[in-house]
Amino acid sequence: MSDTTLLVFRGDSIKTGTEQPFQVPVQEGMVVLDAIHWIQAHAATDLACRWNCKAAKCGSCSAEINGRPRLMCKTRLDEFAGEPIHVWPMRAFPLIKDLVTDVAWNYLVNAEITPFTPKTDEPVPYRMAADDVERVFEFRRCIECFLCQDVCHVLRDHDQKAAYYGPRYMVRIAGLEMHPKDTVNRTALLHREAGIGMCNITKCCQDVCPEHIRITDNAIIPLKERVAGRYYDPIAWVGRKLFGSKAD
């Protein structure tokens, strides 16, 4: 059994906080979260981190490991071949302490999205064809780890949280828009409040998604196409004028 060094961010302000080194004994198959737990039990009982399931199902243990946004429970120590491992909190959100950030903004954004709205007289139980729902399953795989929000440069570097909902909520809206029983059209929301035009499809969200959701290709771009059809396509505009306004 060998040791490895973890350099863990400690502090309650990103400016004054520093990396603190810890020597952690390594067992086969250990992940970064195991190492953090070892540190909590043996070296720093007050080291703050979020975690729940330790099985990549809840999306709680998001952090930046050697500069890359990842789930700590899914990042194995043997990947780093004994090199020191830097563990930092997500940088796109305000720091609370150590590895824990304040992600409340995401929940506020979520509440702005028009919820699932079926027809009031839709017969229950629903009949839905597999062909109609299979696209939506991908979006519903999201575990809300917020790594996509963290890596999105619109939110992270430009801090345009007022202008853009971020990739997670593009995924949620895609799941609602493509739901065969939903009756609401959220194209106007996407164009204005959600700010889909702010995304310049540089795909970092898709790169970091632990659930392998093709966020940009399958959620954001199809929604951009819907917005293009509604707001930018001149022939579609003429069509709507001539044949009535059936928005997208």
Binding site: Y126, V136, H179
Partner: peptide, 13 residues
Amino acid sequence: ETWGAIFDRTPDG
């Protein structure tokens, strides 16, 4: 399902 959940489907939906 009336609140938006979707389960796996049988061939007849």
